[in-house]
């Protein structure tokens, strides 16, 4: 009823078009409600260790493989149980979370940065630049990532910089492909011709007009890439190729817990759950952002 009235009076001097903006607000709230738990998780992971509330994380060989507090035999001194060295599960989960989230963020940045730039270049310049970059993208996408990871890690050993190199190599191509096609469509828009007619340089058009119009897509891609980076790290750590002691991430905790699965399932379960929840949240937020930034989807 109210929507009908609004539709009837779009030129009544009101600067807003409420019907469209309401829909936009809906997708904004979905981003908010997904972002909230994500923010809480990040906050906890970074702040909890500072409060001193967590149980002592050191080894305790008198209390190995304790079940979580809610099972028989568990104690509230170790809410999520202990591992085979008697280290507290919750403390380890929180502390590994820091490294995991850091890897997710940096891993996404190192993939998105070059990916966006190459995609932009390919889409805007066309010609041989486009051909070269497109071939590289296709070649990259044809190689299984585990093969690249194995080759690099076998060569260089596993360390954080090597992990980021692997993440950059495996992540840039899909981002470049999306950016390229988005650029292709933006560069054909008439406002680009108009700017050229006003005497704008190509660099200005690319960085002041094409790139900002890509921003929504890139932010969404980056969010999705955070999820991918965390999964890749987990997979590599599970294979013993990613994060190695003394560092630990959720992936390496999962790997450490796999031998104990039959009798102490909680050692692997909680890091696994943490990865699932985090990646799920990040991906959902990425999808919501994509929808939010796509005017066609928004209008519907």
């Amino acid at each position: 009823m109210s929507e009908l009235e609004i539709e009837l009076a779009p030129h009544a001097g009101e600067p807003l078009k409420p019907a469209k903006d309401r829909r936009r607000r809906t997708s904004r709230t979905s981003v908010f409600w997904l972002g909230l738990p994500l923010g809480v998780i990040t906050f906890l992971v970074f702040v909890l260790p500072l409060t001193g509330l967590l149980p002592d994380g050191g080894q305790d060989l008198t209390a190995t493989r304790l079940p979580p507090a809610f099972l028989d035999g568990g104690t509230w001194a170790h809410p999520l149980g202990t591992n085979k060295l008697g280290q507290d599960g919750l403390t380890q989960l929180v502390e590994s979370g820091r490294l995991t989230i850091m890897i997710g963020l940096v891993g996404a940045l190192v993939a998105i940065g070059p990916g966006t730039l190459l995609g932009l270049l390919a889409g805007y310049c066309r010609g041989w630049v486009d051909k070269t970059i497109s071939i590289l993208i296709d070649a990259q996408l044809a190689l299984p990532f585990i093969l690249i990871a194995l080759a690099i890690i076998a060569n260089r050993g596993s360390s954080l910089p090597v992990l980021f190199l692997v993440l950059a190599l495996t992540g840039w191509a899909s981002c470049a492909r999306v950016t390229r096609s988005a650029t292709l469509s933006i560069r054909e828009r008439q406002f680009v011709l108009g700017l050229r007619a006003a005497g704008a340089s190509e660099a200005r058009i690319v960085f002041r007009h094409v790139l900002p119009n890509l921003a929504g897509t890139v932010v969404a891609l980056a969010t999705l890439q955070v999820g991918t980076a965390i999964l890749v790290e987990s997979a590599l750590s599970f294979l013993g190729l990613g994060v190695v002691p003394p560092h630990s991430s959720w992936g390496s905790m999962l790997a450490a817990g796999q031998d104990e699965l039959s009798h102490s399932w909680w050692i692997a379960f909680f890091p696994g759950l943490a990865i699932t929840v985090l990646v799920l949240l990040v991906n959902l937020i990425g999808d919501a952002l994509l929808t939010h930034n796509d005017p066609r989807k928004r209008r519907r």
Partner: peptide, 9 residues
């Protein structure tokens, strides 16, 4: 297309 000739941002 007047809308296409203006940068939406």
């Amino acid at each position: 297309d007047p809308h296409g000739s203006l940068d939406p941002r």
